[in-house]
């Protein structure tokens, strides 16, 4: 470093200048607010009563004995796992189908992508109609001779319904990412494998999947992080119920902050949420060496 020439130093300066906006922006709009959240989490803060009292780690101790939080964490785990698995599987399936260059591909692609641009409110409301006990879905099942469940009133089906509605809303984006990755897989490799007598499934597993594994990593990170932010859909569809079965962490946090006016405790939950996201991302990033085919 000490020996860096003037030219190299000039290059450094360009580098700092180029990253300056986003670095300063991150400091001001990400790191600083996060720091403030940590600070709030050490206080008991009732916005209405306008009390702001330093309580040390009390909010964190409270977490350990909060049964609501334990339920919320369990719901979050189920929700996130379900969402990521279903989302990625469906996105991959759609992308593979759309990559077959079938007639009508352009139209289908638009169909699958369209919910991404539709307003969340309209989307959730029409699904809440469809998921009623006597709604469109059960009407359809009845035609097929199946007695449909009362989707939003049983813990398991409510969770499934929330996941499915969320997947349909956003799977189009992941589908596009996979589609893009699939189009980057050289045809020649496929062709060579076909000549070697490899079947379609075999080719998919040993050529396509490894080649798009970096995209799978990125998509799963984005989806997991996104799954921890799902709020409005749960609010409209189940309101966190039945019981507490669909009260996920971010919904719980929102309740604490904006319904119960417990900003201090909500801030501590926010810190917990951040740590969870951070750890998950690090784990995924660490594990990439084992299953992601090639490195950047």
């Amino acid at each position: 470093m000490a020996t860096a020439s003037a030219a190299v130093r000039r290059d450094w300066l360009v580098g700092y200048t180029m990253v300056a906006p986003v670095v300063l922006g991150s400091l001001a709009f990400v790191v600083l607010p996060l720091g403030m959240v940590v600070w709030y989490s050490l206080h008991e803060w009732n916005v209405l009563a306008n009390t702001f009292t330093f309580v040390g780690a009390e909010n964190y101790q409270r977490m350990a004995s909060d049964p609501g939080l334990a339920d919320a964490l369990a719901a979050t785990v189920w929700f996130s796992i379900g969402l990521v698995v279903v989302n990625i599987a469906l996105a991959l399936l759609l992308a593979v189908l759309l990559n077959q260059k079938l007639p009508g591909t352009t139209t289908f692609r638009t169909f699958f992508f369209s919910p991404v641009v539709v307003s969340l409110v309209a989307w959730t409301i029409v699904w809440s109609f469809l998921l009623q006990a006597d709604g469109g879905i059960n009407g359809f099942l009845e035609q097929a001779g199946v007695q449909g469940p009362n989707w939003l009133r049983h813990p398991t089906t409510a969770m499934i319904a929330v996941i499915i509605v969320q997947v349909f809303k956003n799977v189009g984006l992941n589908m596009i990412l996979f589609l893009a990755a699939l189009q980057g897989v050289p045809e020649e490799l496929q062709e060579a494998a076909r000549l070697d007598g490899a079947g379609a499934w075999r080719r998919f597993r040993s050529i396509t999947l490894p080649l798009i594994s970096p995209t799978i990593l990125l998509v799963s990170i984005i989806t997991i992080v996104g799954s921890l932010e799902v709020f409005a859909q749960i609010d409209v569809l189940t309101g966190g119920g039945p019981g507490n079965s669909t009260t996920v962490l971010v919904y719980y946090l929102y309740q604490q902050a904006f319904r119960f006016n417990e900003f201090g405790y909500a801030s501590a939950l926010a810190v917990l949420l951040f740590v969870i996201v951070l750890v998950l991302t690090l784990l995924q990033w660490q594990s990439r060496k084992r299953w992601v085919f090639h490195e950047v």
Partner: peptide, 16 residues
């Protein structure tokens, strides 16, 4: 009320 409302809702789900 906010907390009561939420808690009662969750409990009464068993009634329905």
């Amino acid at each position: 009320f906010a907390k009561l409302s939420e808690t009662v809702r969750a409990e009464l789900d068993a009634l329905w």
